[in-house]
Measured scan of single mutants.
Amino acid sequence: MKHYEVEILDAKTREKLCFLDKVEPHATIAEIKNLFTKTHPQWYPARQSLRLDPKGKSLKDEDVLQKLPVGTTATLYFRDLGAQISWVTVFLTEYAGPLFIYLLFYFRVPFIYGHKYDFTSSRHTVVHLACICHSFHYIKRLLETLFVHRFSHGTMPLRNIFKNCTYYWGFAAWMAYYINHPLYTPPTYGAQQVKLALAIFVICQLGNFSIHMALRDLRPAGSKTRKIPYPTKNPFTWLFLLVSCPNYTYEVGSWIGFAIMTQCLPVALFSLVGFTQMTIWAKGKHRSYLKEFRDYPPLRMPIIPFLL
Score class of each variant (00 low, 15 high):
Lys2Arg: 09
Lys2Asp: 06
Lys2Ile: 05
Lys2Phe: 11
His3Tyr: 07
His3Ser: 08
Tyr4Thr: 06
Tyr4Glu: 02
Glu5Asn: 01
Glu5Met: 13
Glu5Thr: 11
Glu5Ser: 13
Val6Thr: 02
Glu7Thr: 00
Glu7Asp: 07
Glu7Lys: 13
Glu7Ser: 02
Ile8Phe: 05
Leu9Glu: 12
Asp10Phe: 05
Ala11Thr: 07
Ala11Tyr: 07
Ala11Cys: 04
Lys12Glu: 11
Arg14Trp: 12
Arg14Asn: 07
Arg14Gly: 09
Glu15Trp: 08
Glu15Pro: 15
Glu15Leu: 09
Glu15Ser: 00
Glu15Gly: 09
Glu15Ile: 01
Lys16Trp: 05
Leu17Glu: 12
Cys18Leu: 14
Cys18Glu: 10
Phe19His: 05
Leu20Val: 10
Leu20Asn: 05
Asp21Asn: 11
Asp21Leu: 07
Lys22Asp: 07
Lys22Met: 07
Val23Arg: 01
Val23Leu: 09
Val23Ala: 10
Glu24Asp: 05
His26Gln: 06
His26Arg: 11
Ala27Leu: 02
Ala27Gly: 06
Thr28Glu: 07
Thr28Trp: 06
Ile29Glu: 05
Ala30Lys: 14
Ala30Asp: 02
Ala30Asn: 12
Ala30Phe: 13
Glu31Ala: 11
Glu31Lys: 05
Ile32Lys: 09
Ile32Trp: 02
Lys33Val: 14
Lys33Ser: 01
Asn34His: 07
Asn34Asp: 09
Leu35Gln: 14
Phe36His: 07
Thr37Ala: 09
Thr37Tyr: 15
His40Ile: 07
His40Asn: 01
Gln42His: 09
Gln42Lys: 03
Pro45Ile: 05
Ala46Glu: 14
Ala46Phe: 03
Gln48Asp: 13
Gln48Lys: 05
Ser49Trp: 02
Leu50Gln: 01
Arg51Tyr: 04
Arg51Lys: 00
Pro54Leu: 10
Lys55Gln: 13
Lys55Arg: 09
Gly56Asp: 06
Gly56Cys: 08
Gly56Asn: 03
Lys57Asn: 07
Lys57Ser: 15
Lys57Met: 00
Ser58Asp: 13
Ser58Ala: 12
Ser58Tyr: 03
Leu59Lys: 12
Leu59Met: 05
Lys60His: 04
Lys60Gln: 10
Lys60Phe: 02
Asp61Lys: 02
Asp61Thr: 01
Asp61Arg: 05
Glu62Val: 01
Glu62Asp: 07
Asp63Ala: 07
Leu65Thr: 00
Leu65Ile: 06
Lys67Phe: 08
Leu68Asp: 06
Thr72Ala: 10
Thr73Met: 10
Ala74Asp: 01
Ala74Pro: 00
Ala74Thr: 06
Thr75Pro: 10
Thr75Ser: 07
Tyr77Ser: 04
Phe78Leu: 10
Arg79Leu: 08
Ala83Gln: 05
Gln84His: 07
Ile85Asn: 13
Ile85Arg: 00
Val88Lys: 04
Val88His: 02
Phe91Asp: 00
Tyr95Val: 02
Tyr95Asp: 05
Ala96Lys: 13
Ala96Ser: 06
Leu99Thr: 04
Phe100Trp: 04
Phe100Glu: 03
Phe100Ala: 12
Ile101Tyr: 05
Tyr102Val: 03
Leu103Gln: 11
Leu103Ile: 06
Phe105Val: 08
Tyr106Pro: 00
Arg108Ser: 00
Arg108Gln: 11
Phe111Ile: 14
Tyr113Leu: 04
Tyr113Gly: 14
Tyr113Asn: 09
Gly114Met: 15
Gly114Trp: 08
His115Ser: 02
His115Leu: 09
His115Glu: 03
Lys116Arg: 10
Lys116Thr: 13
Tyr117Asn: 04
Asp118Tyr: 06
Phe119Ile: 14
Phe119Thr: 10
Arg123His: 00
His124Ser: 15
His128Ala: 10
Ala130Val: 06
Ala130His: 15
Cys131Thr: 13
Cys131Tyr: 05
Cys131His: 01
Ile132Cys: 01
Cys133Phe: 09
Cys133Glu: 06
Cys133Pro: 01
Cys133Trp: 07
Cys133Asp: 01
His134Val: 02
Ser135Thr: 13
Ser135Ala: 12
Phe136Gly: 01
Tyr138Leu: 00
Ile139Leu: 01
Lys140Arg: 10
Leu142Asp: 11
Leu143Arg: 09
Leu146Thr: 02
Leu146Val: 08
Val148Gly: 12
Val148Pro: 06
His149Gly: 01
His149Tyr: 02
Arg150Ser: 05
Arg150Val: 00
Phe151Ser: 11
Ser152Thr: 06
Ser152Cys: 08
His153Asn: 03
His153Asp: 08
Met156Ile: 05
Met156Val: 07
Pro157Ile: 15
Ile161Gly: 15
Phe162Ser: 10
Lys163Gln: 13
Asn164Lys: 03
Asn164Trp: 04
Cys165Arg: 03
Cys165Pro: 05
Thr166His: 15
Thr166Cys: 15
Thr166Ser: 04
Thr166Lys: 13
Gly170Ile: 00
Phe171Thr: 00
Ala173Ile: 07
Ala173Asn: 12
Ala173Thr: 06
Trp174Met: 04
Ala176Glu: 04
Tyr177Asp: 07
Tyr177Leu: 06
Tyr178Phe: 06
Tyr178Leu: 06
Tyr178Asp: 12
Tyr178His: 06
Ile179Ser: 09
Ile179Ala: 10
Asn180Asp: 03
His181Thr: 02
Pro182Thr: 03
Pro182Gln: 01
Pro182Tyr: 06
Pro182Ser: 05
Thr185Cys: 10
Thr185Lys: 14
Pro187Arg: 07
Pro187Lys: 09
Pro187Gly: 14
Pro187Gln: 01
Pro187Asp: 13
Pro187Ile: 02
Thr188Ile: 08
Gly190Ser: 12
Gln192Ile: 07
Gln193Lys: 08
Val194Pro: 15
Lys195Thr: 10
Lys195Glu: 10
Leu198Gly: 07
Ala199Thr: 07
Ile200Val: 12
Phe201Leu: 10
Val202Gly: 10
Val202Pro: 15
Cys204Leu: 01
Gln205Asn: 12
Gly207Phe: 15
Asn208Thr: 12
Asn208Ser: 10
Asn208His: 07
Phe209Gly: 00
Ser210Tyr: 02
His212Arg: 02
His212Tyr: 02
His212Ser: 08
Met213Lys: 13
Ala214Gly: 14
Ala214Pro: 03
Ala214Ser: 07
Arg216Pro: 04
Arg216Ser: 09
Pro220Thr: 06
Ala221Gly: 06
Ser223Tyr: 00
Ser223His: 15
Lys224Asp: 12
Lys224Ile: 01
Lys224Val: 07
Thr225Tyr: 14
Thr225Ile: 06
Thr225Ala: 12
Thr225Ser: 11
Thr225Glu: 11
Arg226Gly: 14
Arg226Val: 03
Lys227Tyr: 15
Ile228Pro: 05
Ile228His: 15
Pro229Ser: 09
Pro231Asn: 08
Pro231Ile: 04
Thr232Ile: 07
Lys233Val: 15
Lys233Arg: 10
Asn234Ser: 08
Pro235His: 03
Pro235Val: 00
Phe236Trp: 02
Trp238Phe: 01
Leu239Ser: 01
Phe240Val: 13
Phe240Ser: 08
Phe240Thr: 15
Leu242Lys: 09
Cys245Gly: 11
Asn247Glu: 15
Asn247Gly: 15
Tyr248Cys: 04
Tyr248Asp: 04
Tyr250His: 03
Glu251Trp: 14
Glu251Tyr: 14
Ser254Ala: 09
Ser254Arg: 07
Ser254Phe: 06
Ser254Pro: 02
Trp255Arg: 04
Ile256Ser: 11
Phe258Thr: 14
Ala259Val: 09
Ile260Asn: 10
Met261Phe: 13
Gln263Arg: 12
Leu265Asn: 04
Val267Trp: 00
Ala268Gly: 14
Phe270Asp: 01
Val273Gly: 11
Phe275Cys: 14
Thr276Asp: 14
Thr276Val: 01
Met278Ile: 06
Met278Lys: 09
Met278Ala: 13
Thr279Ser: 13
Ile280Val: 12
Ile280Leu: 13
Ile280Met: 13
Trp281Arg: 03
Ala282Phe: 11
Lys283Met: 13
Lys283Glu: 12
Lys285Val: 14
Lys285Arg: 10
His286Phe: 02
Arg287Gly: 09
Arg287Asn: 14
Ser288Pro: 05
Ser288Val: 02
Tyr289Ala: 15
Tyr289Cys: 08
Leu290Tyr: 07
Lys291Gln: 09
Lys291Leu: 01
Glu292Leu: 08
Arg294His: 01
Arg294Gln: 08
Asp295Gly: 11
Asp295Val: 11
Pro297Gln: 00
Pro297His: 06
Pro298Ala: 07
Pro298Ile: 04
Arg300Asn: 02
Met301Gly: 08
Met301Glu: 01
Pro302Ser: 11
Pro302Leu: 12
Ile303Leu: 09
Ile303Ser: 07
Ile303Ala: 04
Ile304Leu: 10
Ile304Gln: 05
Pro305Leu: 03
Leu307Gln: 08
Leu307Val: 12
Leu308Arg: 12
Leu308Val: 12
Leu308Phe: 12
